[in-house]
Simulated scan of single mutants.
Amino acid sequence: MNVMKASSRKMQEAREEQRETTKQDFQLNTNYDETTDIDRTQLWEQITTVEPYESLTTDIDKTQQWQEYTTEEPTEKDIFTATQQATTPITSSAECSQIVTRDILEETKKEIINTILSTISLEITKKLEDIEGRLATLICSNDKSPSAIELSWQIYENLQIPLTGWLFVFDQPYNHRTRLDDLNQIAGICHNQVIVTATFNESISLATVGPASVLTLNTSWNQSQQFWQVYWCRKNGKSFGFSPLPSIRQTSADNEDLNSLLRLSWLLDQNIGGYRAGAIRSFADNSLWHKVIYCN
């Protein structure tokens, strides 16, 4: 604004100087006479009339008014109107015609659940892969399995030592209908020795140790086969078991010496389970006593 005022002032001074020069020219004119004074005065007024200056002054005033208008402080009404316009939500002329139904909600819920489960599954898989990678880097100081505890081929009562190195391969309650196929399957796993036991509440009450071949014996009726200090029998349709003596009486299972604490006999390929653990017999409906076999 100051620049424009200075420019205007310079132009005015220039016009004044031009007017004075023109006036002097008129005075120096030797042909001047009073008869033409009126005409010259009119010409002088035309020359000294500065229309551009007045136009410039008008433009300057307009510019000043525009700046004053644009820099004017907004009123509270203007602020309220602008805020209302900014916070008014823009609504579409086309309203949503879709109705949210129970089926849509169920599909949305299933999609969310599937997404969550997929994310959890990926996280678990990643964690398992990390664990597997760490385990793969471990170096075992001794890659051999621990040696099985050595037991003599004899009959044991209330065996309480830990059976380190022995594999737990068979466990059925005494009322289980034991078959030849059960023993054959176990024989396919065991290739060295076996421990045949009768347990009560998971404690070994009666046990004996022998070669794995005792599981595939085919002894005659009321006959036994000796392995070290133990006599074994396995007769299809009768029984499987062991005894401290060679005498066996297979009426169905072994009923020889009913008071003996060292005889074990399981009914084999019959319609009921049982039958004997030491001096305790029957067990047809008993699930507390179990038939258990280990091997190494």
Rank of each mutant, 00 (worst) to 15 (best):
T41S: 15
G188N: 15
L117N: 15
I149D: 14
N255C: 03
D257F: 02
F240H: 05
G188D: 15
R9V: 08
N236H: 07
Q250H: 08
I161V: 15
A198N: 03
L206S: 02
H191E: 02
A253N: 01
E54V: 06
W153S: 15
I124M: 09
D59C: 06
K10Q: 14
G273H: 04
I293D: 01
L128Y: 01
K10W: 12
T219P: 06
Y275V: 00
D181T: 15
E129V: 04
S118L: 04
K144Q: 13
V50G: 07
I112N: 08
C295R: 10
P52F: 12
K144E: 11
I131E: 14
T41F: 12
W66M: 09
E72K: 07
N286G: 01
D181N: 14
E202R: 13
A148N: 08
Y174F: 15
D182Y: 05
C96F: 07
H290K: 13
Y275P: 01
Q154M: 09
T71R: 08
L117W: 07
M4K: 11
S7N: 14
A207N: 04
I60G: 02
T48G: 13
E150H: 15
I248Y: 05
L258I: 02
P74D: 04
Q24H: 12
K109Q: 09
C96D: 10
K144A: 10
I112C: 04
T36C: 08
S203N: 15
A279T: 00
N255I: 12
S141K: 14
N2V: 08
V196D: 02
D254R: 08
R40D: 10
D103V: 11
C140V: 14
K127T: 09
W153P: 12
V214W: 05
T75H: 02
Q27M: 09
T87A: 05
T63F: 10
E256M: 08
Q64A: 05
T164N: 14
T57K: 11
Q12A: 13
P244C: 06
T48Q: 08
D182C: 05
E123I: 10
W266L: 08
D257H: 06
R40N: 13
F240P: 04
T63V: 07
T251C: 01
S8P: 01
Q185V: 11
L288K: 03
A86D: 05
Q172I: 01
F240Q: 05
E129P: 00
V292Q: 06
V169P: 09
L217H: 01
L264P: 00
V194D: 02
E202S: 14
C190W: 13
I116D: 10
C295I: 02
L105W: 06
L264Y: 13
Q27G: 07
S93F: 03
D103T: 12
S141H: 09
D254A: 00
H176M: 09
N31G: 07
E256Y: 09
E107T: 14
F26C: 09
D143Q: 14
L245E: 09
D103G: 12
E73L: 08
P89A: 00
N114W: 11
H290C: 05
C190R: 13
Q223H: 11
N201C: 10
F227I: 00
R249N: 12
S141N: 15
L159T: 01
I189C: 09
L138F: 15
D130C: 06
L267G: 03
Q160C: 03
N286M: 06
Q226W: 03
A6L: 12
S92N: 09
S260H: 02
S92M: 06
R19E: 12
K23P: 01
